[in-house]
Design a protein around this nucleic acid. Structure first.
Length: 464
RNA sequence: GGUCCCAUCGUCUAACGGUUAGGACAGGUGGUUUUCAAUCACCCAAUCGGGGUUCGAUUCCCCGUGGGACCGCCA
């Protein structure tokens, strides 16, 4: 069996789309499963819209989620001369022809077709130019001579057999009037040159396959296998658009989704393996296959993403989780001050239990990360006179404690419960408000142990 | 409009002719708990409609309905 090689071929015209991430993931998993290669090809032949910064961003994004491409990334624009050569060859072998229709002429035809309510297809005017005079002022485009009759079949590894009437494929352009190659040509030439064995891409490319197949056949090149994966839809069921605010990878990174969690979620979106929900990286490589991919589009579900993320937050190594939080905070929130680092590290074990995303940990840790805590006017009312007396008593006992540990703290609280004829809540509630500024939060002992002694004293003394 | 594709709980999906149609997320109820969570137990919830084929259809075929993709000198 020949080597499996897949590629991810985004155009660097914007931040990486979440659907693109999944396409990349599937390509990567498939090739790794087959012990093959995975390449990254930047399709930057649209000079107007392509930007270098996006190229770098794409590479970084893939790296973030754990996808590493083999070799150096291919830059499509660097291969343009080769694409042109192939176009010349197609021309020479009369698989293609020059079309001298002006843009105006084509637009006119389009308008006419629209008016008549029929679909526009180029009328193949220059396919047989024997009675036509070549206009001098028009630079021609090169069109591929598509098959006119019969049917074409593609055996798609996901979609199954797709049968299409050749008459519906127009004579598509392979070279623009400035001599530059179009996507249909460039993609085929590059895939061939890169020895791509499996083209795994979005459903939206399905019809292109029938154009591209004809180029392969004309050049007598070996056709790769095709697998068109269903698109991801927004919650509303429409194609995911940039306006959906959860359409690009960074949208997820900035709320604190973990790479493994997103990888796991994306893997299970449109693909399944029995009843299994959680896949380690190794498992996903081992178990991934094309036959597990469903045929219908799937909707993005933030609840599920959060739920998987929560799972990873709870199960990941705490040191790693802290490192991620640190990077996350600096990039999207506020850099964690060195002086709080130790207390934060020691608190991760309980902070992570209340979090679905890094953002939650960050927010719940605010009482550790700020010396000046704010108590809302609502909560300050809960600190009534009896509560304040309890707090004062607690402070007295607390200051006497030589060693800050749970055991000693328990003793104090028990003593106060007896003395004030109250329950744990009667002491815990005011303490929590005084120390964190909120009536919701971590367990009392956790809070007490997560702050330095002088800080606890300071916060309690403020309450008058 | 034309071409192509798709259709199981609200969502992601399992069941590749025989299951009380399973799991997960979300939702609900209760237990546990110093708050909020978390956690545990239980519950609710689906085969788009109509015809066939078959002893038997979620599964195969046809029609309808619904949804989607494509129809650029973008990729």
């Amino acid at each position: 069996m020949s080597l499996v090689a897949t590629r991810f071929a985004p155009s660097p015209t914007g931040p990486l789309h979440i659907g693109g991430v999944r396409t990349a993931l599937f390509n990567w998993l498939f090739s790794k499963n087959k012990k093959g290669k995975f390449y990254l090809r930047i399709e930057d032949t649209d000079k107007e819209r392509s930007q270098d910064e996006y190229k770098d961003q794409i590479i970084q994004s893939l790296r973030w989620i754990g996808i590493q491409h083999d070799e150096k990334e291919y830059i499509q624009s660097k291969n343009i001369n080769k694409h042109k050569e192939i176009a010349e060859e197609l021309l020479k072998k009369s698989f293609a022809y020059k079309c001298y229709c002006s843009e105006e002429e084509i637009n006119e035809q389009k308008a006419k077709a629209k008016k008549a309510g029929i679909p526009f297809t180029y009328n193949r005017k220059w396919r047989d130019p024997k009675d036509l005079e070549i206009p001098k002022n028009i630079k021609p485009v090169v069109r591929f001579k598509s098959k006119i009759s019969g049917n074409s079949i593609v055996n798609d590894l996901v979609q199954g057999e797709i049968n299409i009437s050749n008459s519906t494929i127009e004579d598509f352009i392979v070279l623009r009037n400035d001599g530059s190659p179009t996507y249909q040509l460039s993609a085929v030439v590059d895939d061939h040159l890169m020895n791509i064995s499996h083209v795994i891409r979005g459903d939206d490319h399905k019809i292109n396959t029938f154009k591209q197949k004809q180029i392969y056949e004309a050049m007598k090149w070996k056709l790769p296998e095709f697998a068109h994966i269903p698109l991801i839809h927004s919650t509303s069921g429409k194609k995911l658009s940039k306006r959906d605010n959860a359409s690009t990878l960074v949208d997820y990174i900035k709320i604190g989704i973990l790479p493994d969690a997103l990888r796991n979620y994306l893997l299970r979106l449109g693909w399944s393996y029995k009843d299994k929900e959680i896949f380690t990286l190794e498992e996903s490589i081992q178990l991934f296959n094309l036959s597990g991919i469903g045929k219908s589009p799937s909707k993005l579900d933030m609840d599920r993403i959060l739920s998987i993320n929560e799972h990873y937050i709870k199960n990941i190594d705490e040191k790693k989780l802290y490192e991620m939080l640190k990077v996350y905070s600096e990039k999207y929130k506020k850099k964690i001050d060195n002086k709080y680092e130790k207390n934060l590290i020691n608190s991760i074990y309980f902070l992570k239990n209340k979090a679905k995303k890094l953002e939650d940990i960050y927010e719940n840790a605010q009482y550790i990360l700020n010396d000046n805590i704010q108590i809302s006017s609502e909560d300050i009312k809960l600190l009534d006179e009896p509560s304040k007396i309890i707090l004062k008593d607690f402070l007295n006992e607390y200051e006497k404690v030589s060693k800050k540990n749970k055991n000693n703290l328990e003793k104090i609280i028990k003593k106060l419960i007896d003395k004030h004829k109250t329950n744990f809540k009667g002491i815990g509630q005011p303490l929590r408000i005084a120390l964190t500024g909120s009536k919701f939060g971590p367990a009392i002992y956790d809070i007490l142990l997560s702050l330095d002694k002088n800080e606890v004293v300071k916060r309690l003394k403020i309450i008058k």
